[in-house]
Design a protein around this nucleic acid. Structure first.
Length: 856
RNA sequence: GGGCAAUUAGCUCAGUUGGUUAGAGCGCUUGAUUCACAUUCAAGAGGUCACAGGUUCGAGUCCUGUAUUGCCCACCA
């Protein structure tokens, strides 16, 4: 009797927490520096410390798969986790917290707000960390880093200082994307364009008419521009036009930027409030007149408009223009308007002074690294995307006027001392005091763009944990393809700049996870799948499998509850396979090297070996879906449906245990909990599955003693069984008698065949006149009732028709001389072989038809 | 305007260098089931691989074009 007693079904809730705890307590998540193989490192993209886990984070499962796989392979494996303070995002969240108390950030002041937001963030961090742990992530939490940790910030400061010394950093007074809500400038990449319908107003400027969507900025006009090729206006170039309402004359200039076909072909040039106009202004040396302030209110305009918001001002100016007859037309126009991607506020282009980084030089190194595959990008098509983007990036505005961020380490001179520099780059106020003298300096209040600091995440974290020497460059960066340009290229740039080498050797990009109909998940659509609800309901492994199988690198994937449920079933199947096997082991059993003593043994051994190769290769090539599918199919289609069933007739405990053990190993990276839960039940294992060796196909092949059985023979058994089952189903037969002629395959496998077919009896009868089992090479029959004759003839006729059609196709192929000449001989031979097989089958069908057809 | 991706069974998706009669899961139909698992088992139906050309002995796969959908970048007075 067996000493094993497993629950009837796998209940994730009973196992996951304790297994995770055991992993962590054993130190399995920490890199094993004694491991024989090279370091393998992944730096986790830090999720927002204030956020909740969503399907995007759940895709870190890919990282866990890689890490678990490499750990089992014997690499010194480090997965370094972290969380992000998420600058502006957190600021917005925390401001809304304050709003609940009826406060704004101005009530607290900059420093108090920063401290409070930081405390809020640190207090929330355990939430997201706990959620990631619940997904089974085998990261080394003892190394957890936070983007505002002192040591991280120090690294960022040092980089800034070095870049400044290298002449890569400068102050620039130019047009920026200003968010009046956030009171900060933003990089182009943070501006999201939304389509809108607005009014296009045609205004009378005396000599010309211009078209604009922003009449409230006419007071900032510095010129009117026309295209130099535009014959309508050539005579006017050099003349003046007059801004209505204020009657201020401006020059008419020619600039190629102007499109003759748009509006009237004449453009009001407003350098201070339009990006393109700013460029035109630079080309023509035009004044930059500001009429919108940082709050989005009109300034430097006639009194009646002063202080109005842009929107109110527009309406008022339009009314005034109409009143004086200068508004000659109004038409709807569809265009895109830039908004801040975090808060949705319309971006006001205006001129402010900001910190910039020159990117051309540093980016050139990134381009070279990507071109030479020093950074391999998966899928490869994103190589081009990143190269195009890098080659076209403008100097990067790295300063923000948010309050929640890393302050730019600069102090400004406030005295008039001509011997002192205008500013000093240092994070140390003492240094500033020494240099300028007390009271003669002020600290910069701008903070870094979060991508400036998070772009340094790989080496900043590794430096902070003391792992830089051992684990940099890292192995793989796995992240969403949407932040390829925002983040991945920045990390490459910073890594090459500061470390002189790439931060990661490969980048794996996953796509978006959509809902069950391939639609983007969104709160407003109500189709958001909460990963934690799913793991609660179906178990963590089920979610992990659902996010792995059927997902293609870089492509959007879809997730549904039904899909997750299906993988819950898989986990249960695995559990029950184990339950079944363990249930029949004798007391005190301990496994020995498997010996293949039956046809089925030889076959399953081969299937396992092939699967080990397939799964290994798939993971190596980042084809995680294929890896998952290979394990799924091995367990369910091969091991459970065939080998286990066959073992009910002829059992080989060692082979069962070997198969189960190997499957557990192969499945572990994707489904770590259920595999470890089963592994724990096997008393002969001294260590946890998480640190067990990954199976080696060659080693297995030499270890398994084969008793001279061919895997092919069992494949024939499977064909025979399938044919008998199909025949039974189509004829509605119940209990079967299988007659055979006494060949070796039937002697060796007859019992197994009958057992797999179920409700079948075996009989030696070389003279049977039953229905021929056509897939059996030596004659065998299903004994049939004469009453079934009509059904049999129908079935045989249908099969004959199918085979004749197939034969015709093969014949026409072989009749084609060019095919026979040009195709590889192996392909042609295969066609010929198949034709022979069909002919044999057809002759059998004819014979049977003759036997069962009514005699004439 | 430029680019990328997708278009394959009712649904969601695979299909790795061109080569068996194109696959999976779910759903559907029929049947089974005290024997590890109904979170099960067996059998089955279901596809002109978006469309039009082309290359090739051979195209879901390569080329050209078209359509639809989604995404990215640029512009949008």
């Amino acid at each position: 009797m067996s000493s094993f007693e497993l629950d009837k079904a796998y209940d994730p809730k009973k196992h996951e927490a304790s297994i995770y705890e055991a992993w962590e307590e054993s130190g399995a998540f920490k890199p094993n520096l004694q491991a024989p193989k090279d370091p393998f490192t992944i730096i986790m993209p830090p999720p927002n410390a204030n956020g909740d886990l969503h399907t995007g984070h759940a895709m870190y499962v890919i990282e866990d798969i890689l890490v678990r796989y490499r750990r089992m392979q014997g690499h010194k494996t480090l997965w370094l986790p972290g969380t992000d303070h998420a600058g502006i995002e957190t600021q917005i969240v925390y401001e809304s917290e304050l709003a609940k108390q009826g406060k704004s950030r101005y009530d607290l002041g900059r420093e108090a707000f920063y401290d409070a937001a930081l405390a809020f963030t640190r207090a929330n961090q355990p939430n997201i960390v706990g959620q990631m742990r619940s997904l089974g992530f085998s990261a080394d939490w003892s190394r957890l880093k936070f983007t505002l940790d002192r040591d991280i910030v120090d690294t960022v400061y040092a980089t800034f200082k070095q870049m400044h010394a290298d002449g890569l950093i400068y102050r620039g007074n130019r047009i920026v994307n200003w968010c009046t809500n956030c009171q900060s400038s933003f990089a182009d990449i943070e501006v999201k364009f939304v389509d809108r319908t607005d009014s296009l107003y045609t205004l009378d400027y005396g000599t010309v008419k211009i078209a604009t969507t922003r009449p409230e900025t006419i007071f900032a006009d510095a010129a009117v521009a026309v295209n130099p090729e535009d014959a309508r206006y050539t005579a006017l170039v050099g003349q003046t036009a007059v801004i209505p309402l204020v009657d201020r004359p401006v020059g008419i200039i020619a600039d190629a930027h102007v499109e003759t076909g748009f509006g009237t072909g004449a453009l009001k040039v407003t350098p201070a409030h339009d990006k393109n106009d700013f460029e035109i202004g630079k080309r023509h040396n035009l004044p930059e007149i500001a009429v919108v302030d940082l709050d989005g209110k009109l300034i430097n305009v006639p009194d009646e408009f002063a202080g109005l918001s842009v929107t109110a001002g527009r309406a008022a100016v339009v009314a005034a223009l109409e009143a004086v007859g200068k508004l000659t037309a109004t038409s709807p126009i569809e265009h895109s308007v830039g908004t801040h991607d975090r808060c949705g506020t319309i971006i006001e282009p205006l001129i402010t002074e900001q910190w910039y980084m020159r990117v051309a030089g540093p980016n050139a190194k990134v381009i070279a690294a990507i071109e030479h595959d020093e950074i391999k990008i998966v899928p490869e098509r994103f190589k081009k995307t990143s190269l195009d983007w890098l080659a076209n990036e403008y100097d990067w505005n790295i300063s923000r006027q948010n309050w929640f961020g890393i302050r730019i380490p600069v102090f400004y001179k406030t005295s008039n001392d001509p011997t002192k520099d205008a500013y000093l780059v240092t994070a140390d106020e003492n240094e500033a005091a020494n240099y300028y003298g007390a009271g003669n300096y002020r600290a910069e209040t701008d903070v870094f763009d979060t991508w400036y600091s998070s772009g340094q995440w790989p080496y900043a974290t590794l430096a902070a944990t003391g792992d830089l020497d051992q684990f940099y460059p890292t192995s793989v960066m796995e992240t969403g393809r949407d932040i390829l340009t925002k983040w991945v290229t920045k990390m490459a740039m910073f890594g090459l700049y500061r470390m002189g080498s790439v931060p990661f050797r490969a980048v794996y990009l996953h796509g978006l996870i959509n809902d069950e109909h391939g639609k983007k998940m969104s709160k407003s659509k109500g189709n958001v799948i909460n990963p934690l609800q799913m793991t609660e309901k179906y178990g963590t492994d089920a979610l992990r499998l659902a996010l792995t199988i059927g997902i293609t690198p870089g492509n959007d994937g879809s997730l549904s509850e039904a899909k997750i449920e299906g993988y819950r079933n898989f986990c249960n199947k695995l559990w029950n396979v184990a339950r079944f096997i363990l249930g029949q082991l004798p007391e005190g059993y301990s496994p020995a090297a498997p010996v293949a003593t039956s046809t089925a043994d030889a076959w399953i051994a081969e299937r396992v070996i092939t699967s080990v190769q397939d799964v290994t290769e798939a993971i190596e090539q980042y084809r995680f879906s294929d890896a998952g599918q290979a394990v799924y199919s091995l367990l369910w289609d091969d091991f459970a449906d065939w080998y286990l069933e066959a073992s009910k007739i002829e059992v080989n405990h060692d082979m069962l245990i070997f198969g189960l053990g190997t499957i557990l190993k192969l499945a572990h990276p994707i489904a770590p909990f259920v595999t470890e839960a089963i592994w724990k039940e096997l008393p002969w294992h001294s260590s946890q599955l998480i640190v067990t060796d990954w199976p080696d196909a060659n080693k297995i092949r030499t270890d398994i003693v084969s008793d001279n059985h061919s895997p092919r023979e069992f494949e024939n058994v499977m064909q025979i069984v399938a044919e008998i089952r199909a025949t039974r189903a189509s004829l509605g037969l119940d209990k079967l008698i299988l007659a055979h002629s006494g060949s070796s395959i039937w002697y060796a496998n007859g019992e197994v065949i009958a057992g797999l077919v179920r409700q079948a009896e075996l009989k030696l009868d070389p003279a049977s006149h039953g229905m021929l089992i056509k897939s059996s090479e030596s004659p065998a029959w299903i004994e049939v009732d004469p009453q079934s004759r009509e059904g049999i003839v129908n079935r045989l006729t249908k099969q004959k028709g199918e085979q004749q059609g197939y034969l015709a196709g093969l014949d026409s192929k072989l009749a084609n001389a060019r095919y026979v000449q040009s195709a590889p001989p192996a392909v042609v031979q295969e066609t010929k072989d198949r034709r022979e097989e069909v002919l044999v089958l057809l002759s059998k069908l004819d014979e049977q038809l003759a036997a069962f057809s009514p005699q004439p």
